[in-house]
């Protein structure tokens, strides 16, 4: 697999490019997690576990959809099949991405993975019109990404809130897979239910006002989907 190479979209350099649509989202088939935003938790929660992990570069927490049990395994999007009734926005947006989230850059920069197999010069949707203006589809993607950026920032604030009130704890995840040794997944975090139940009234009110309860309980409910991953894995034959 070629490495992702996100570059700002350029009306000269990329003027002839078309984007094919891959309904099976093959680009994530070697990834066992993708970022998941707080507003998605409710819909996603019946499909796969939603957990919190630390980013390797910064140590900052992010919420993710756990799609596989080992490093490069994706049980949800694989072999052209989708074992989910919900597609995370961070899967749907591909091969596009948004950059320029920091305060100095008010304008969002639309980027594209130049190495994506979905890009070509004839098939699919045009990125630019003949006059160099973004196509209608590109404009829609741009609006979609701006919305994702805002919701990503809101998710960070949600996670900060959880940390500030000591509501996250390490999740112990261990499975017995057939005759093999126990499979232990490290580095996953979840909401501490006990701490949640012990919160003072005024914090509970804040949680309610910010509409965090849906996200929290969806996340907790989604932890049952580890069993679903195991079931898919049992019938799963890697290529």
């Amino acid at each position: 697999m070629t490495a992702v190479n996100m570059v700002p979209l350029d009306s000269v350099k990329h003027k002839d490019l078309h984007v094919n649509v891959d309904q099976s989202y093959g680009h994530v088939s070697k990834q066992n997690m993708v970022p998941l935003l707080a507003f998605e938790f409710l819909q996603a929660s019946t499909n796969f576990p939603i957990v919190f992990v630390k980013q390797q570069e910064t140590g900052k927490f992010k919420s993710v959809a756990l799609l596989g049990l080992t490093g490069e395994e994706n049980l949800i999007f694989s072999e052209g099949k989708i074992h989910s009734n919900y597609i995370p926005v961070n899967v749907r947006r591909y091969p596009f991405a948004a950059a320029g989230k920091n305060a100095q850059e008010s304008e969002m920069v639309l980027c594209i993975d130049e190495n994506s197999a979905l890009l070509n010069k004839s098939e699919g949707v045009k990125i630019f019109e003949g006059d160099g203006k973004p196509s209608k589809a590109t404009q829609e993607v741009s609006d979609f990404l701006a919305d994702i950026l805002a919701k990503d920032a809101a998710t960070d604030i949600f996670i900060e809130f959880l940390l500030e009130h000591d509501l996250l704890q390490a999740a112990e995840v261990k499975f017995q897979l057939g005759q093999e040794d126990d499979l232990k997944i490290n580095g996953l975090y979840k909401v501490n239910e006990e701490a949640l139940n012990d919160l003072p009234d005024e914090i509970v009110l804040t949680l309610y006002q910010r509409q965090y309860f849906a996200a929290i309980y969806s996340h907790l409910a989604s932890l049952n989907q580890f069993n679903r991953l195991l079931q898919i894995k049992a019938g799963f034959k890697p290529q």
Binding site: G59, K60, L163, L168
Partner: peptide
């Protein structure tokens, strides 16, 4: 440098 920039997590 990373700790100065991002901080360490408590957990």
């Amino acid at each position: 440098e990373s700790i100065k920039k991002y901080g360490l997590q408590k957990i």
